[in-house]
Design a binder for these strands. Structure first.
Lengths: 333, 333
DNA sequence: TTGAAAGCGCTACCAA
DNA sequence: TTGGTAGCGCTTTCAA
């Protein structure tokens, strides 16, 4: 059996409470007693039980839940890393789950995390309704929404400037002479997709260019579907001369497709989300960049402030993006 | 306050035990009682407390610990994804931590996970001694080591065929006429580095080529240091005509460095670890590939078998690699 | 079908 | 400086 404090107490010939004091480094234990207790702890291989501690202390666990679309997507993996870095000093752990944009799965994941009494929740939401988290929030579990806002719930939210980033991207392409710029985007219902679409439109309007529905391909939930979308775009009677890709998965798919079809004149391109190998491709990929690790850090910092008692109204932060010209976005039509 | 079963019982005018039965879907509750309890649960926003459950049942938690070098590294992120997929149906969660190859941090992370009574541990070890996990293992927490074996501990281990993969890579380069093949590897003490170095040597020996210490650069713990290493290699009196890169981070660094120096004749290259954009680079990168998601799945499957009572002796599995020729490894000297 | 009581491992409170 | 006791929220055991 796993040794308990009682076992340690017996082995060290002291009371349970004394063991507790040693384990928790309370100072009111004499040197010899402390040593013999520590010896007993080592001998038995005792480790304190967080379940019992959390239960007794009536507090939440040493875990923060992180719910995203896919932990293996570089964007979310970087987010996880940022969160971890930020809470490391507090000895908090990050429990991460993937939804694959499945609302059911998201809800199951969040419910499970709540049952586990996580100390906080960081959510890149996918479902249409997060009101079921209201009670949790009211009971003191900090919840921060990242990259997308919650629906039917008032909670802290950290977003990326989707509209501005997309507008900049498309204006950049237009400035280089393009008049037919395509947009390949994620699922139509996703917040970031909509924001980036709006930025795309705004850029066209500001440039006096028509909005052509034919040039917009939404619903690309993975790189495979993005591949199909760009192939289809290229087969139009009047194909685009430039493309704005809506996220890192889509960019991958589009790049793969473009590498597959030998084009006489390469399609100009600006991609949302930076990626490590972007400077190494031919041509190097111009991107709308932001810092996902920093995004995770900020979200975690917000959680920590709430844990520390900040009970102010929900905050909404929007972090800026910046365009990094590398070549693919500077080619003319 | 957070509602408990007692609160629900009071609200529904039944006993605590009846609520427990409803919550746990035991069948011995009458229809009306069940309904009124469920109503009370909804009204109060009750959620059962996993801490109390695990404590009372004397079992481990619904979490598996995953300790790697860096959750944001694509290899480990994919590993995490595989684990998650495999245990999803059991309603297990994955709590992931990064060590950055710091033994202290690794130990702190593992101790914390043990205190949290995780249901199992998946570890890509970095420290020189994991004997401190022996008691945990003996007490019934399954532990699986992934990608690297443990030191001073007998436990399940899943490895990649480092020696074979590296040998194949270098033989491939030699078969294309190279006689000076460099190896840029990770920290010298790391298991995978050593195995891949051995494969490198074996290939040279089998080809009747000399082992030239000058062509081996270990200690590249990130892409930055790999960049420096390859630059240095190129400045040799007789520089290599080909390079074998030891992992995905190193490959990134080497590629970046090579893009920086315009070379008259490109350096041939085979990389350990496949990566999404490898086919899109110029030239496309020949890799020694394996499936990290599947590796994670396998490791998780092993954990699950142990959780299900398999008490056999520790197993050691080695998964094969396969060479994917894409262009960078087929250029002559 | 329902309920009462004991106790999981721990910390808080009070007493010595 | 030390120890006893109560009780966190739940499941288990036994009884009605």
């Amino acid at each position: 059996m796993r040794p308990t404090m009682t076992d340690v107490a017996r082995a060290a010939n002291v009371s349970l409470k004394t063991v507790s004091r040693v384990v928790n480094e309370e100072r009111s234990v004499s040197g010899p007693t402390q040593l013999s207790v520590q010896q007993a702890i080592r001998d038995l291989g005792y480790r304190r039980n967080e379940h019992a501690r959390a239960l007794r202390e009536g507090r939440l666990s040493r875990m923060l839940g992180l719910v995203t679309k896919d932990v293996s997507n570089p964007f979310y993996a970087a987010l996880a890393r940022g969160v971890e870095e930020e809470v490391r000093d507090r000895a908090l752990l990050v429990v991460a789950g993937s939804t694959d944009e499945d609302s059911e799965r998201e809800r199951a994941l969040l419910e499970l995390l709540c049952e586990c009494r996580v100390g906080g929740l960081l959510v890149v939401p996918t479902g249409p309704d997060h009101s079921f988290l209201a009670s949790e929030l009211a009971l003191g579990t900090p919840v921060v929404f990242v990259d997308r806002p919650p629906c039917h719930l008032a909670a802290d939210t950290i977003l990326i400037d989707n509209v501005g980033g997309a507008r900049t991207a498309v204006l950049h392409l237009v400035a280089h002479g393009h008049r037919r710029v395509a947009y390949v985007g994620d699922l139509a219902g996703v917040f970031t997709t909509v924001g980036r679409l709006q930025g795309y439109r705004e850029a066209l309007v500001a440039s006096g260019l028509p909005f052509d529905q034919e040039l917009v391909r939404l619903g690309c939930h993975d790189s495979k579907s993005a591949e199909a979308a760009i192939i289809d775009l290229l087969s139009l009677a009047v194909p685009p001369t430039a493309v704005f890709t809506g996220n890192n998965r889509i960019t991958s798919g589009v790049l793969r497709a473009l590498a597959g079809v030998g084009m006489a004149r390469p399609l100009a391109m600006v991609a949302f989300d930076d990626f490590e190998l972007a400077p190494l491709l031919s041509p190097p990929v111009t991107v709308v960049a932001h810092d996902p690790v920093e995004l995770g850090r900020r979200a975690a910092r917000l959680i920590c402030e709430r844990l520390d008692g900040d009970a102010g109204p929900p905050r909404r932060t929007v972090v800026p993006t910046r365009l990094i010209p590398r070549g693919s976005g500077e080619a003319g039509p």
